[in-house]
Structure formats: structure tokens, C-alpha cells
Amino acid sequence: MKDVLLITLKGIFRDRIFQGIMALAGLIVFIPSAASLSMRQVTELSITLSLSTISFIMLLLSVFLGATSMWKDIERRYTFSVVSLPISRTSYVFGKFFGIALFLVLTAFVLGCAAMISIKVSSMGYPPARPVEWGLIMAAIVFDAFKYILLVGVAMLLSAVSTSFFLPVFGTVSIFLVGTITQQVYDYLHTPASEKVVSAIVKNAALVLYYLLPNLQSFDLKVYAIYSIKPSLGGVLTTFCYGGIYTAVLLLASSLLFGRREMK
């Protein structure tokens, strides 16, 4: 698994798509100047822009790397050479996944450092009303990375069964979009107002999807970081365990499906 992981990492660093996406990271440098244009809540805006930029970059990376890494190997016939080596298909899937996951962690770390420097610069020029909670900013970045690692798991699962580029890419994007609103839908379905509008069948279908699809909103700690509000420790731990278990299930399913896949 380690060998596939290292090769995957090497491939990402040499990929032109990655280099293009990382050029976007340069935007972080301009965040203090952009935030100062708002004239008020400059530090808060700086935190918002920094965390959103990191989140957007990681979304692009997780979709493109997660959805294309395995597909590219199959499409370009690299898998014939690799899975006929003495490595199990599980090791191959896990190696690919952890290579991308490690890369996302590295990206989060580098971009996080850059973002914190930007936020520091903003906060020195325009001191915020509430002190900046650096721990919360770090937690927001860590949980964001965690969310996108889970999304890579989704992409890997779709890649394990798909023969084309479309299902992994568009499937992952769709699941990301749905995953960020399932909590809101769930909350809405439990309000008295929904009972008059939503039929029982639609409600049950929505609830099935709520439990089946990943709830990505719970990983979003940006608001806590921006306004320096401490989230509940229990909630954070639950999200952490949920993410871990969900990702593990995705990986096991990917490995099982890829193990049965025929390399014709």
C-alpha cells in the first residue's frame, strides 16, 4: 500500500491540473487587501475569505483527484501493470485513497499556514471586536480537510464501479451538493410547516437519503471560527467519529467492488 501511496503522491505533484488548481492558492495573499475594502469586520471577512478559498481549492482537488485518479489508471491501462504486481487490489485502492488524503492534508496545512498569516496581517491592521481564536480556525480547516477526504472516498467508490469519467466526477459533485443540504432538509421535514406541504412518501424518501448520503454540513465549523464561538465538544467528536466510520465504509465498499472488477 505504501508504494502505491507514494506513487500516487508523486503523480499528483507532477499533474498539470494540480499545478493549475494550486495557482489559485495565490489568491490567499490578496485576502488582507480584499478584506480591507469592506471597511468593517475586516478580520472576520478575512477569516471568511481564507477559509472559503481553502475549502474551494480542496473541493476542486478532491473531485478531480478522487474521481480521476483511479479512472485514469484504468483508462490508460496502468492498472494492468499495477494490479498484476504482488499487491492486492485492496492495497491498490487504499494506497490511492491515502495518497490523495495525505495530499489533501498537506494542502490544508500549507494553505492553512498561508491563511493564518493573511488573517494575522488583517487583524493587526484592523483589530477585531472579539479576539481571533486560532485553535478554532485550525479546527475549521482540519474538519474541512476531513470532509473532503470523505468526499474522496465517495469518488473512489464511484470510480471502482464506473467505466467512464462522468459518474465519478458528476456523481461526486452531486453528492457534495446534496450532502451540504441534507441537514437543512432534515430540519425542515421536522417542522410543523412541512407536514402540510410534504407528502409522507416524499418525507420518507428524503429521510432515507438523509441517512444514506453523507451529512457534510456537520463538518463546517467556519461560522464558529469567524465569530470565535466554541462549538460543543460532543458535537465535534460525533462528527469526527461519523466521518471516520463513513469513510471506512466507503473504502471497504470500494475495495470490495474493485476486487471483483474484471480488467478486460
Partner: peptide
């Protein structure tokens, strides 16, 4: 030692 037909290897290596 296995050589596949029309082999392809990670071309960035």
C-alpha cells in the same frame, strides 16, 4: 514477471 499486451506504465515516472 509479467508483461501485459501493449503495456502502459505511469507516464509521469
Amino acid at each position: 514477471g509479467f508483461l501485459p499486451e501493449n503495456p502502459a506504465f505511469y507516464d509521469y515516472l
